[in-house]
Every structure is written in structure tokens, then in C-alpha cells.
């Protein structure tokens, strides 16, 4: 804060605030349209697409909230996102640790494997992946069938972000523990992991939001009761295309969890990304 105070110029004139207001309006407009549209009736929406709710109608939202399918989609999304996140973060930090802390010949080539992993667009592998999961592993239409590949695709960015993070941790604690006779694995669990919590949160949120928002893989793998929220939203909007207000309410409610998670942890995410950028 004190550093920022020293920046004496570059404050806000009216023009700056006006520009900022335009940016905010354009950014939030569609989201607010969705949220407010959910409080209107279809008749109101047809009469004046851009108006405010008058009177406020809550039935669209209560209908969605009492819709069993919505909760099932939400449950599927949550379970898949949690499993994806746990696997990606755990496997990721385990892989990043030796890449950051051990000295061995294959260290840089091994790291390059993960960097190259960033380059494999999920779309390239999607059809064989679909065949692998449904036929060879028989995990089609299941939570694991989506979570495992998603975790695998989240791994490269997880490792790439975590490695510099682990490298920057002070070595003294680890060295002290080793002198006291702790094993490398013990040091990893009791010292490196707790110390790297901020980095773990960053990659965890990225993996969670990525899974929560994923569409292509769930689209191919999940049917009926196993569908996730994005699939549910897309299908609901085609099935109930006449019920615009209902679609908007459904959509707005589906946005909430990822938004809350991001808002709650945004400072940490920003800091984590900052570290990754400086890399």
C-alpha cells in the first residue's frame, strides 16, 4: 500500500472514470441482463427486452430451485469439479516438487514434458479420449470418466505454475528438518505442502473453475441424469427456447458457484498468476 501511495500521478480525472464506467457497463451488462431477466416474466421480456423487472417475478428462480434436475446437475458438476481438483493438485504438486527441489539429469527434459503438455489442445484428443473412456475403461457416463481426463489436462498448467512457486520457498526450513533426520518425503508433506498453500489454492481454483465450466468432454461423455450444469443450461435453453425468463434464471443460478469461488479467492489467484507470469 505504501508503495502505491508514492505513485503521485495517474489519478482519476473525469475522463478516466467515464472510461472505467463504460468498461464496467459493457462487462457486467450481459450478466446483469441474465440475472435481472430471470426476475421478469416472458411477457415483460417481449414487451421491452432491455427494461427492468416490473413487477419483480420470483417464480422463475423458485421454479429452477425446486427443479430436481437442476440440483442433480449441480451435484454432478460439484463432484466432478472436486475430484478433478483434488487429483490435479495432488498429482501436480507431487510432480512439481522434485522438479523444483531435486537435482537430477532428466529434470529439465521432464519439465519440458509438462510445458509441451500445454500445447496439446484437448480438442485434438477428444474423439480417441471418448473412445478410451467409454469402451476401454468403461467409464462413460460416470463422474470418474470426466474427472480423470480433466485432471490430466489440468496437470501441465498446475506443474508450470507450482514449480517456480516451490523453488521460491525458503530452503532453510527444509534443510533444518533434514538435518533433524526427516526424510525427503516427510519434508514434502510437513513443510513444502503447508508452505505452498497459496500456490495450491491458485492452481486448485483454476482446475475447479475449468472443470465447473467444461463443456466439450462432458458433452460427449455424459447423458441424462449424469449431465453437468453447462450441459443442463445448454439443453434447457434449446428445450425451453420459448421460456426466455426461465432460461435466464437457470443460467444465472448456474453461474453463481464459480463466481463466488472466484470472488472469495481472487486476491490469491491474481498473486499466483503474477508469479506464473514472471515465471
Amino acid at each position: 500500500m505504501s508503495r502505491q501511495k508514492m505513485r503521485t500521478f495517474g489519478g482519476g480525472g473525469p475522463l478516466v472514470y467515464a472510461l472505467a464506467a463504460v468498461v464496467v457497463a459493457l462487462t457486467l451488462g450481459p450478466v446483469l441482463y441474465g440475472a435481472l431477466g430471470g426476475f421478469r416474466s416472458n411477457e415483460q421480456l417481449a414487451r421491452d427486452p432491455a427494461g427492468l423487472p416490473d413487477p419483480w417475478v420470483t417464480s422463475n428462480y423458485t421454479n429452477v430451485l425446486s427443479n430436481e434436475a437442476f440440483w442433480r446437475y449441480a451435484l454432478n458438476s460439484s463432484v466432478i469439479a472436486v475430484v478433478t481438483t483434488v487429483i490435479a493438485v495432488l498429482a501436480g504438486v507431487m510432480a512439481a516438487y522434485p522438479l523444483a527441489r531435486y537435482q537430477f539429469k532428466l529434470r529439465e527434459p521432464l519439465f519440458m514434458v509438462f510445458v509441451l503438455g500445454l500445447l496439446f489442445p484437448a480438442a485434438v484428443a477428444i474423439i480417441p479420449l471418448f473412445i478410451l473412456v467409454t469402451r476401454n475403461l468403461e467409464l462413460g457416463n460416470s463422474w470418474w470418466g470426466v474427472a480423470l481426463p480433466q485432471a490430466a489436462f489440468a496437470l501441465p498448467i498446475t506443474v508450470v505454475i507450482l514449480r517456480p512457486f516451490l523453488m521460491a520457498l525458503p530452503k532453510e526450513l527444509e534443510e533444518a528438518a533434514m538435518i533433524d533426520g526427516a526424510s525427503r518425503v516427510g519434508v514434502f508433506w510437513r513443510i513444502a505442502l503447508p508452505l505452498s498453500t497459496p500456490g495450491l489454492i491458485t492452481v486448485g481454483v483454476l482446475a475447479f473453475v475449468g472443470s465447473w465450466n467444461a463443456y466439450l468432454l462432458p458433452l460427449l461423455l455424459l447423458r441424462e441424469d449424469m449431465r453437468t450444469l453447462p450441459l443442463g443450461v445448454a439443453d434447457y435453453s434449446t428445450e425451453h427456447s420459448a421460456d426466455t425468463a426461465g432460461v435466464l434464471a437457470f443460467t444465472s443460478l448456474a453461474m453463481i458457484p464459480a463466481l463466488i469461488l472466484f470472488l472469495a479467492l481472487q486476491k490469491r489467484i491474481v498473486n499466483g498468476l503474477q508469479g506464473a507470469v514472471k515465471g
Binding site: 450481459p30 463443456y215 445448454a234 443460467t251 448456474a254
Partner: peptide, 8 residues
Amino acid sequence: AEVIAGVV
């Protein structure tokens, strides 16, 4: 989500 934004 891209899909959700797309629907809006």
C-alpha cells in the same frame, strides 16, 4: 462458463 455466457 463459455456455454453459460453463450446462452445469455
